[in-house]
Simulated assay, not measured.
Amino acid sequence: MSGTSLTLTIATPSRVWFDAVEIVSLRAEDESGSFGIRTRHADYVTLLTPSVVRWTCADGATRYCAVDGGVLLVSRGAEVSIACREAIPGDSLESLEAGVRRHHAVEDDAARRARVDQLRLHARAVRQMLRYLCPRQGRDAAYGVAMGATSR
């Protein structure tokens, strides 16, 4: 590594998204606002807010990564590490926005499925309790009442 570059590593618990990528500079955001990191930056640790991290690669390209917060560490003035729960990379702001939208759609769908599963489990538990609590001859009538049916 040359003395004029940084390396960037971004990792989540399930994946290392970028591993010692050579960069020239990085912009991120913490509670105090936006800040920049360049070579020979002082050792530094901060908690990132949910935001977009932006960096310039050694070839001049700008890359992006949405993070849900996390910890940014600068060590030895040359290594930048970000640890976060979730990261969504993008080559442009447009591709990043599309990736974030897809990610949120998948999360929303998973949450809907979890709610449906929870309701099914609840209904199954109610039916099971009715089987044990109601006498055999009144079980069907009680089940109908519990499920909203009307008797004649």
Rank of each mutant, 00 (worst) to 15 (best):
R113K: 10
A83Q: 05
L6P: 00
R102E: 15
R85N: 08
V45G: 07
R120A: 13
R113I: 07
A78N: 12
G70S: 08
S5L: 03
R85V: 02
C65I: 08
E94K: 08
S34T: 12
Y64L: 11
D43A: 12
G60Y: 11
L48R: 06
I82K: 06
A105F: 00
C65M: 10
A98K: 13
A87C: 00
S92A: 10
W17L: 15
Y64S: 09
T12Y: 01
A58F: 05
C84K: 10
L96A: 02
L6A: 01
V67Y: 05
E107K: 14
M129Q: 13
A61K: 15
R124K: 11
R124M: 07
V45A: 10
Y44G: 02
Y44L: 12
A111N: 08
E29Y: 01
G99S: 11
S32P: 01
R101G: 02
R38C: 05
E29S: 13
A20P: 01
A83P: 00
L26F: 04
T62V: 15
Y132P: 00
L119G: 03
S34N: 07
V53S: 05
V52W: 07
R102G: 10
G99R: 04
H122I: 09
V100K: 04
A11T: 13
R27M: 06
Y64C: 06
T9S: 13
S5E: 11
L121T: 13
S25V: 02
E22G: 01
V80S: 11
P50M: 10
G77Y: 03
E29V: 06
D19Y: 14
F35A: 02
L93C: 07
R112C: 08
R38S: 04
E31P: 01
E94D: 11
T39V: 12
D30L: 00
E22I: 03
Y132D: 14
G99C: 04
L47H: 02
A42M: 06
T7Y: 00
R85F: 00
I23N: 02
A114M: 05
A28M: 12
L133A: 14
A58I: 09
R38Y: 06
H41M: 02
V67L: 10
A111I: 09
W55I: 08
R127I: 04
